[in-house]
Nucleic acid binder design. Structure first.
Lengths: 139, 139
DNA sequence: TATATTCCCTCTAGTAGCTATAGGTTCAAG
DNA sequence: CTTGAACCTATAGCTACTAGAGGGAATATA
């Protein structure tokens, strides 16, 4: 099967300009072109794009994905590195979740006050103005 | 007290170019200048910057903060709007946390496999290539 | 074969929220 | 009065796209 860029977009849910962007960034390899210079992808291109999309959905950076793609093209290389990239990303993710949970806690506190009056005495605004009112260890 | 931009930066932990950026974005009001055109801030400027920093740490957008700043300058306005901004942000945050937790789960699964061999049979890479291997509802 | 519609091409610029650099001026201390 | 740190503006860069202009290519129908 041969796919146009639009077909690829439809099948993967990745938008057309994004596919071209991935090509520019070296994630997608430049495909063959039709006589009229339009991109023509094979099954291989479809699989590569699925890989990229999946990794992006998991929050991996373009740079990380480039590493993984390079690794996957050298099957003799040790798997260790791929594992490390994923593990490093998991750590980042867990740190981010922890931080967001702290923020959630403070926002809940801030929005929990009684705010029926005027801005002059607004709990939300006072809480933001005075960091000392909060638990203090975010950021 | 009068502060230079550097003093303000030191006291709030916000970098100098960032303070100027906030001025450009309309969050900080343009301060008085010295005879040699350098910014001179008052206590008011320091407080405003603390407010902004705190809100940014909570993940509020520049746009949201601009609204809050505008509100806080009109003490007769109802507090309701400020409350809504914070509440809306809390919802976003909770959605983000939920999503990241899903990703965490899948990344844990991916990195949990035995990956001592070569890339050719790497679990990490296979899992990324084949979305059908995962629980499927992320993204 | 003509035409209409849909698709595709490249290139440029815009988004958020900064950060970094270049090239020059001012302030404060000694 | 000189030195060195701090400051100024303006511009460009970062991530990961997205949108638009202005045009060519592919395809379906008449």
């Amino acid at each position: 099967m041969i796919y146009s860029i639009g077909e690829l977009a439809r099948r993967t849910g990745v938008k057309i300009p994004t596919i071209r962007y991935y090509e520019q960034m070296g994630l997608m390899e430049p495909p063959e072109r039709s006589s009229g210079n339009q991109r023509r992808y094979t099954q291989h291109g479809l699989e590569r794009l699925s890989f990229i999309r999946h990794a992006r959905q998991l929050g991996l950076s373009i740079e990380d994905i480039r590493e993984l793609v390079d690794l996957s093209q050298r099957p003799e290389r040790p798997c260790h590195e791929a594992h490390q990239i994923a593990a490093r990303h998991l750590e980042n993710l867990q740190a981010r979740i922890a931080k967001l949970k702290k923020l959630e806690k403070e926002l809940k506190r801030i929005t929990g006050g009684s705010d029926t009056g005027q801005v002059g005495a607004c709990h939300v605004i006072r809480a933001l103005a005075d960091h000392s009112l909060c638990d203090g260890d975010h950021g």
